[in-house]
Nucleic acid binder design. Structure first.
Lengths: 139, 139
DNA sequence: GTATCTGCAAAACATTTGCAATTCT
DNA sequence: AGAATTGCAAATGTTTTGCAGATAC
């Protein structure tokens, strides 16, 4: 995605597009690996040596608040962040620890309401044994 | 639930039923409010003055490992624990902060496999505005 | 020129660990 | 006696906060 588009996206959601913020959002767009704060910080610090972790925290908070990115809800204690335009769900393998994106059409993802409550965010997360590890076990 | 039944449940899952462990599991069975470690600790410390938080942590870890209880996956940084025999999902109100249990029949909760991955745990969590708060807003 | 953003250092928390004391079998 | 559980204190790791300096509108 071009920088212009990133800036446009931020303006749409009323986030001031500073240099650091653009770089952090760009990182999330390029790395669809559910990075932690530390991943983002380390990934950008060679390019932006003056970057501080506080700024990463601040920026992520703003982006989450403005619904540009979301927090991946897992049982881990370190937060992971996710940029995606498409609704999807997550699967984590108990064996290899891999966190997969699942772009699966589920009725529940389309649901806007449940028992009278208005749904604004869907967080669907499965844990188990992934395809790869199942094959390994069979061997 | 009677203490005997709690002990039976623990024996089934190969957890030694110590006094503290029974009390902690009992607390989780009685308080279906997704308590935090601190909630459990504070809730029991009047009854068990010698109880330490480390024991609460230890016990919860054992109970989760043996699939007697589960961790509620939210975006919060403090872990919440859940005892329930029935599969269900969670809804959190962005306004009042309430965390609701939703016992709703969803196809996805029955799914044992997705894209070749074996599902062992389903964590479904919605965020939005709850029924009550929606009514408040309309006023 | 005033708002906002940034970054350092310190503080605040939740959670884990090491180890000794206690308890259970 | 031997193994598992408990609990204190210290350590660890993540996230937040206060505040001063830099930057943007």
């Amino acid at each position: 995605m071009k920088q212009e588009e990133i800036i446009k996206k931020m303006e749409e959601r009323e986030v001031q597009a500073s240099f650091h913020r653009i770089k952090i959002l760009e990182y999330l767009m390029k790395h669809r690996t559910h990075p932690t704060v530390d991943d983002i910080y380390k990934g950008l610090s060679s390019e932006i040596p003056t970057l501080s972790k506080t700024t990463v925290y601040n920026t992520l908070k703003v982006l989450v608040d403005k619904n540009i990115i979301s927090i991946v809800t897992t049982e881990e204690d370190e937060a992971r962040y996710d940029y995606s335009e498409e609704m999807h769900l997550h699967f984590k393998c108990k064996q290899c620890g891999n966190l997969y994106d699942i772009f699966h059409k589920c009725e529940i993802l389309k649901q806007k309401e449940i028992e009278g409550h208005l749904i604004e965010e869907h967080h669907i997360y499965f844990r188990g044994i992934c395809k790869k590890c199942r094959k390994e076990i069979k061997k």
